[in-house]
């Protein structure tokens, strides 16, 4: 298994173990993925003794050693984009689509007809200028709308 998978498994078995990722490349999607998998921070392979000990000290104090660039990626992942073109209902339907719900289950959970769901989805596709559910989900995620 690679380090990201190992991180996930360690945290699953022993959530209290703190994990620091060792990486060659500092600002990569993979470092972000490892943080998402449960790592608390990371160190680069060429870190000197001070940096290694400083990272350990930060972890013990409850901190997360990471560069500002990675911290920005983490913050960005939590921040949903509020400047979306959708109505509240469309946004709820889009959210449900992302969760993999069927038209029927969306209709049931919002207590509306399947035709009403289709109507909202048609408007969502128009606003996103897409023709498929997959493209709608991809575009909505890319813009942090869901």
């Amino acid at each position: 298994m690679n380090g990201i998978e190992l991180t996930r498994r360690i945290k699953l078995a022993f959530p209290k173990i703190e994990i620091i990722i060792i990486t060659i490349f500092e600002n990569s999607e993979r470092v972000f993925d490892s943080l998402s998998a449960g790592a608390s921070g990371y160190l680069t392979k060429n870190a000197n003794q001070l940096e290694v000990i400083d990272a350990l000290d930060q972890i013990v104090k409850g901190g997360s050693p990471m560069s500002p660039a990675i911290a920005r990626m983490v913050v960005g992942s939590f921040k949903k984009n509020n400047t979306n073109p959708f109505t509240d209902k469309e946004l709820s339907v889009l959210d449900a689509l992302v969760q993999g719900k069927s038209y029927k289950s969306i209709a049931l959970s919002f207590d509306v007809s399947i035709d009403a769901v289709r109507f909202h989805i048609k408007n969502i596709y128009l606003k996103l200028q897409v023709n498929s559910k997959e493209d709608a989900i991809t575009k909505a995620k890319k813009n942090n709308w869901v």
Partner: peptide, 10 residues
């Protein structure tokens, strides 16, 4: 362990 240092490229 209290802390695990894990290589991302294992």
């Amino acid at each position: 362990p209290d802390i695990a240092l894990v290589d991302i490229d294992l």
